[in-house]
Design a protein around this nucleic acid. Structure first.
Lengths: 343, 343
DNA sequence: CTGTTAGCGCATTCAT
DNA sequence: ATGAATGCGCTAACAG
């Protein structure tokens, strides 16, 4: 047989093998309409014999859809993002699309490279967590790009693309208000990575709540790792300035703080209350109260919105951008001072 | 301008816009050799004006590399796998390749679908966590596939493809031995998902260690969630049969057990020692001793091996399969009974 | 029902 | 240094 030995079999190979024209083969693999029973069987046999799989590139060149969408996130390892990705993938699969996954590490330079790659591959849509929210180069890309784009987790300022985000302000305010209602007055807010929009929003929520209650905001936004967290709390302890409660603006900080309090022998919720933004696996076991983001909803809605655009169900660029704000959930366990609930 | 309005600009569009032939444009975007200074500038301007990005599909059709590799894992949300993915991606990027990410949920049916998709896209290589280790259809696929494949985390029995795995037997044995050395005699092994190769290996390690020390293995492999874990331990408590120590064969079970012990008021490491397979974020904070898998190494080595194959640096299918076993790390914190270490 | 043919966008001879 | 022509594998329009 004169099959293309070095690489994959082609449609022509199959046609020759089955003794038919290429069109017949093409028709068979595209639904099998207008092909006689017997011919179909013969062609199918040839396909199996040659392990033929159509060349996607050739189809795309003919103008078929690529059925590829790109998901660009800061990191896969972050449980929050991997949760979103999982949900988005599920949606993509339901639309018979495959996902190209790119990571930016929040670096605008890498982000540009990701965009180059996905343009190269002619992805039909882009689900993007922008590295920075204020970016003229992203704005420019949005302007010239002809493929649908949906941002999630963070918006891009002044951009005319849809975005799906959590209401971070509201979440932080709910959390802080709750601590205030418990009667705490000195509520410390611990944070880091303040360049991120999400963090800024949470800070705003915290401040709003404190101000609203006539309390002074106490903040330290230099928490980068366990070490800095320990130092900060030790210092406050040394000065006899320990707070009544701590609001941690993100996942990892909540964990650091919990660890520090434990090491310093401070009983969480007895001596110091703790409430964090973002849930994590062990939080429930440890009774740590948190603001929970609906990550699967985020990924799912973002992806559904994207496909609505792709399928032309939404007016497109002409219309104004539409930001969907998802409400976070205040999950009360015991670290905030709430009583243990007995099931 | 007669530019292809509805879609992306083509090389011909650029050529027309710049008043040159297509060849010249092609040369410019492929290194720019043999193009005069002035022409180059003119063409570049046209490229920018039209936001031209070469059509990858056309290049592939011409025989260029797709520069695409597929990563097929059970789930992205699992921190173990997302760690592997992150590392593999880093390697892929260093080889100028993009990653297509597919998930199987450990379902052989979905796995087949993933393989269809990646064949369609002509990925140059496949990094696979096989849904099941005993699979004739996978074996068949390996046999006919002409693209390099590397399995990781789990092997496929009797397959002639490389695999990179953790030495699970050894890890479990190290863990159990350590508990034995602490003087514990009644060491309970708690597990689930026993259909997975990794779990089976860990069980073997546990049994080897127990048998080797002349102790009776005590196992319950029906732990599926928090509820079952609680029931099992409560039962043992009711019978006065609580063990001295517990070895949890995986991540989530360790967490369940920790949670149960806490709820039952049993002091971990004082009343009952605990040691788990697989590290997790809060384990350090909680002082839970674990067997740590080098996930980034796993992903990295698997990917590097794959690229060695892709780049023809390894003999290929002819040679026997080569399984790389990575040594896990026993990370001793306090839950196993070890003293707190003061830095 | 089935086959022939043109052309998608690009890289690549082979001329000039 | 530059361009015209060819073909990669496939689909679709057009015969038969």
């Amino acid at each position: 047989m004169a099959v293309n030995a070095s690489t994959h079999a082609t449609l022509a190979d199959v046609a020759r093998e089955a003794g038919v024209g290429t069109t017949t083969v093409s028709r068979l693999i595209n639904g099998g309409h207008r092909v006689s029973r017997s011919t179909a069987a013969r062609v199918q046999a040839a396909i199996d014999r040659l392990s033929f799989v159509p060349n996607h590139a050739a189809r795309i060149l003919k103008g078929e859809r690529t059925r590829l969408i790109a998901v660009v996130v800061p990191s896969v390892a972050d449980p929050f993002f991997s949760g979103c990705i999982e949900a988005a993938q599920r949606v993509a699969r339901s639309h018979h699309c495959t996902t190209i996954l790119l990571t930016t590490q929040n670096d605008p330079e890498l982000e540009r490279e990701c965009i180059r790659v996905l343009t190269l591959h002619r992805t039909e849509g882009l689900l993007l967590v922008p590295a920075v929210s204020k970016s003229s180069s992203l704005l420019e890309f949005f302007r010239v790009s002809r493929t649908p784009i949906v941002c999630f987790d963070r918006p891009v300022f002044r951009a005319s693309v849809d975005a799906v985000v959590t209401d971070n302000v509201r979440g932080a305010r709910m959390a802080t208000d709750h601590l205030i209602q418990h009667g705490y007055r000195r509520i410390l807010c611990l944070g880091g990575e303040t360049q991120l929009w999400t963090i800024q929003q949470r800070l705003r929520g915290y401040r709003d709540a404190m101000t609203g209650a006539g309390l002074d905001a106490i903040e330290n936004l230099q928490v980068h790792d366990y070490k800095t967290a320990e130092q900060i709390i030790r210092n406050m302890q040394g000065n006899g300035m320990l707070p009544d409660a701590i609001f941690a603006v993100k996942n990892s900080i909540t964990i650091f703080v919990y660890e520090v309090l434990r090491k310093l022998g401070l009983d969480v919720s007895k001596s110091i209350a703790l409430l964090g933004f973002d849930d994590f696996e062990l939080a429930e076991a440890l009774g740590i109260s948190v603001v929970q983001q609906p990550e699967d909803k985020l990924g799912e809605i973002a992806a559904e919105t994207l496909f609505a655009h792709i399928n032309g169900e939404i007016a497109g660029r002409a219309s104004k951008r539409n930001t969907t704000k998802l409400m976070p959930n205040l999950v009360l366990r015991t670290s905030c001072g709430c009583p243990t609930v007995q099931p």
